[in-house]
Amino acid sequence: MDYAIEVSNLHKSFMTYEPKGTGVISSLRRTRKVKAALRGIDMQVGKGEIVALLGRNGSGKSTLIKAIAGILYPDSGYVKTMGMDPWNQRKRLAMQIGVVFGNTHPQLYWDLPPIDTFDYIKGIYGIEDADYNARLRYFIRLLNLKKIYKRQTRQLSLGERMKCEMVAALLHLPPLVIMDEPTIGVDLPARMNIRQVILEMQRDYGMTFLITTHVVDDITNVDRVIMLDKGKVIFDGSQEKMRSMLARDVILELRFGVDENPSRLIRKGKIMKFEPGYLKAEINPSVLKEKWLTNLIKNKKIIDYRISEPNLSTVLERFYSSTNKGRRKRGKNSQNKKDGYR
């Protein structure tokens, strides 16, 4: 397979300083700590794929993205982006990638309208007039920028700015687009349009996307999900695989006329919600075939029933709570070993 991004055994630590005390003098004395942000990352992104990079705050997503984009020098390991060494071939690589770095490192010039930044991008990447105008029209229509793109950037709302940041990253149709929280502050309809833009660019130009996000519905259309935790890849696969790993259980909902004791109705599984006339439980799919359940569903008292898969946010919620447990457990161990950090 032709890879757009190849990373193996990538490490990056940051030096951090913490004041020793809270007083003015004691805060001058600092302890040095090493914060390992990436601890042996292995991952690949194939050309033309849309991949979501997920993980809790501080799990290393942004650090990884910076190393891939060539703006952060890793301690050790291997990174190839579009077949290039991102650090030593940064300038050549820059022609081939488009980036959005959340809200904190905007590309748009703060005091100028977005259109000036777009013109600048046209210049640096040598976009032909006709192409430029056509693409601009496309983005303006799809992302609803007509009333926005000629106003000073600093007057725009967060979501309006992020949409323009997105345009700035895509105008030169880079084969690889890396976006760190591109949908921060963007409203639902605009997020849907952004998803459409991404899918159309993948379809029409074979563009590759690596996107981090904390917004669950952003990942509905991605081809693959990579999850980081404490600087390591802990999951890499399709959404179906993620569901089947983390959420094997299905959701059973029952509506019934008479009050019943739920524990009598459901013999296996976990009851999530019970109120008069309604019950919601999580059960293993194999239980669905068991006799007591088929009898229960046929029972006259049951007015209606529904079996469904847990939705994505339930899956993620479970994922995050599972990493949280691991964190607490490991935290205890490492305290014993007196190495709070590594």
Binding site: Y109, D111, L112, D116, T117, D119, Y120, K122, G123, I124, G126, Q152
Partner: peptide, 22 residues
């Protein structure tokens, strides 16, 4: 050339940016 095109684009937006603070 592509290099002079890039740097002159940067000069143009740099000047526009200066003018924002005329």
């Amino acid at each position: 050339s592509s290099a002079s095109r890039k740097y002159s684009s940067l000069l143009v937006i740099g000047l526009k940016n200066e003018m924002a603070y005329r």
